[in-house]
Structure formats: structure tokens, C-alpha cells
Nucleic acid binder design. Structure first.
Lengths: 169, 169
DNA sequence: TCCCGTTCCGAGTAAATTACTCTACTCATT
DNA sequence: AATGAGTAGAGTAATTTACTCGGAACGGGA
């Protein structure tokens, strides 16, 4: 089961991806717009920052933005960051392997065999889908306008001459 | 994440499948042999019985046995019975659908789209693998003896003339 | 330099879930 | 009727989830 935390994270990231290139987005705006409890969202964004997915800017004119392009942010990484390993059992996790204590011969464990299939299938999907893919798939079937600009508390931010200069620092 | 409950259930079912045709197996023997807390196992077996996967017999000579052949018991059913739906989100569950409250247009939800893929992949695997498949795959790669008979408290039960007459009642 | 807007951090907490245990009951067979 | 089994429901400790609170740290502008 995907936790609310991970779901909120995905929603926030999608919003940030749509606002990509428009400068930092305030936690407060994001929370209001996506109807996510603000304090909870703070935790989540911080996690995502520690994962290298987001970057932040403090003080006036600050907020959060993507650290990488939406094409390079995969759902697997996001969900692992917030919910832990994708694998249904620790003994089939590639990113967080741990032996099951009760199972003595791992090789001969049928449950493990099948769960490994499940893990692989899940990982193939989630590590193969980027934020950009997600957005594209949604927009393709329901081509809505690129959305009124996300930020609202800060009305007159300049959107920067050329789009999306992503600071690498 | 697969719960211990579901894992215990699978282990117990595998053992019962291997003992299929040898008459009822005692909870106590199953618990000891599979190193599962007995009282907990009782709950689990009862669940499986309610699901129509197991049948039981009370009194002396009683115990649990499969209600269907190992070929007809699919992992998906077992796991759903104990851990609930396979789907990572209620809104993509086929067996336990529920709309997400915050998501207004389900059709246009990208998260849902991807999670549906995950659910489908998982279900394809788990609803496509039977107890018999599981056992066969294990035995094929490590062809161990069919195991010393499971029961030990009751030494001299007659194994029934022809194998495996499964009562349909 | 001081203020203010903003993120960052540690702790705390209520509710739900998990992984069990306890006690007693019911039912079948001998 | 005694005994050997499963059946039922309540209870509970530990963990996880989904948050909240209060304030410290930092950055930029006046």
C-alpha cells in the first residue's frame, strides 16, 4: 500500500514539475493548492531534498524547486525515499536486502521466488516511469491548459528570461 | 509489504499441500514444524477456512486439510484473504475498489494510471501462480525427497486406501 | 545591522495496524 | 461422559502512520 506520505510527495512533485522553470514554489502555496497539511508537507519536501530530488531556497523569494529535470525523476526513487523498499519481502529487495531470519535456505524458498517476480515487475514499472512520463500521459488524454501559474502569494515574480535555468549548485 | 500473517499462511499451505492426501494435519504439528506461534496460526487457518481454502475436522483424528487441489489455490486469493487487496491504492483495486476522496477526476489522475499498472502486474503474477506451481518450481531446482511425513503426534494414522479423496461437503 | 520571510529540525501524539496471547466454548469421537 | 480437537472473542504490547507544535537557522533586502 502506498502511504499518504508518498502520495502527497508525488502530487507535490507533479505540481513542481508543472511549475518547473517558474522559480521557487512556497510550501504554503503547494500545500494549499494540493490540499496537503502544510506541516506534513514540510517533512516530505525535506525528505525529497535529502534524496537529491528537490532543492530549496530560504528567505524572501525562496521555496522549493526540482533539482533535476522531470525526465530524470523516477517514481521508484520517490516512493522508496518515503515508503521504503518496493519489495514485498526484505529478502527480495535489491536496494534494502535483508535475509529473513526464519528462512534457512533462501535459494529453495518458493515464496521468495514469486515475491521476487512481483518486486521485479513493480520496479520495472516504477523505475521506468518518470515525472515527465506521468504528466505527458495525463496531458495526452486530457489536454488541459498548462494551468494558471501555481504561485499566488507572490504575484509578480519574474519568470526568468530563458526557461528553466537549473542551478547545478 | 507482505505481513507475517500472510507469509505464515503461505508456509502453512505449502506444508498442507505437501501433506495432501495424508489426512488431516494438526494445528500443533503445523505450528511446531513451521515454527509459527500456534495461537496465531489458529487465527490464520480459520481465516483460510472461511475463505473456502481449507477444511477442518474436529475431535480425535481431526485437523486441517486443503479443500481444493493445490492446482486450484492461487496465491492472490490467499494474500488478499489475509492482507487485503493487492492494489497499492484503493482506487485501482478490482476486488476492493474505493474512490480516493481527495482525487476529483479519477480518469485524469496520473498516479492512478501508474498504480493500476502495478496492480495489474502484481495480480497477473499472484493470480497466475498456484500452490502446486510454487511447489513444483521449488522441487524442480532442488529435488528433495517428498519429506518425512508431516504429522508426528499421531504416528499410526491410516493414509486412506486410494490417495486424496477430497470430500466436497 | 536588523527584520522578516522562509526553510529546517526535534519532539510529541492520537489513531490505526500488526503480531501476537488468554480464556473459554463447541463439537466429534471413543 | 470424557477427551481431543478446532472456534470465538477479547485483550494487549509494540510499531507505524499521519499528523501537530514550537522554535531555531538562514538568507536577502531595507
Amino acid at each position: 500500500m502506498l502511504s499518504k506520505k508518498a502520495k502527497y510527495a508525488l502530487r507535490a512533485l507533479i505540481a513542481l514539475a508543472r511549475a518547473d522553470g517558474d522559480g521557487p514554489v512556497l510550501i504554503a502555496d503547494l500545500a494549499r493548492r494540493e490540499r496537503i497539511p502544510q506541516k506534513f508537507l514540510e517533512l516530505i519536501l525535506l525528505d525529497l531534498k535529502r534524496q537529491g530530488i528537490l532543492q530549496s531556497k530560504k528567505g524572501r523569494g525562496g521555496g522549493y524547486l526540482l533539482r533535476k529535470e522531470p525526465e530524470a525523476i523516477y517514481l521508484g526513487q520517490v516512493i522508496r525515499a518515503l515508503d521504503g523498499p518496493l519489495a514485498p519481502l526484505p529478502c527480495v529487495s535489491r536496494t534494502a536486502y535483508a535475509p529473513c531470519e526464519e528462512c534457512d535456505d533462501e535459494k529453495g524458498c518458493g515464496i521468495r521466488l514469486v515475491m521476487k517476480e512481483v518486486r521485479d515487475a513493480t520496479a520495472r514499472i516504477l523505475d521506468g516511469t518518470s515525472l515527465a512520463d506521468l504528466i505527458e500521459r495525463v496531458d495526452r488524454q486530457r489536454p488541459k491548459r498548462k494551468g494558471a501559474p501555481l504561485r499566488s502569494s507572490r504575484a509578480k515574480t519574474r519568470a526568468g528570461g530563458a526557461k528553466s535555468e537549473r542551478r547545478t549548485a
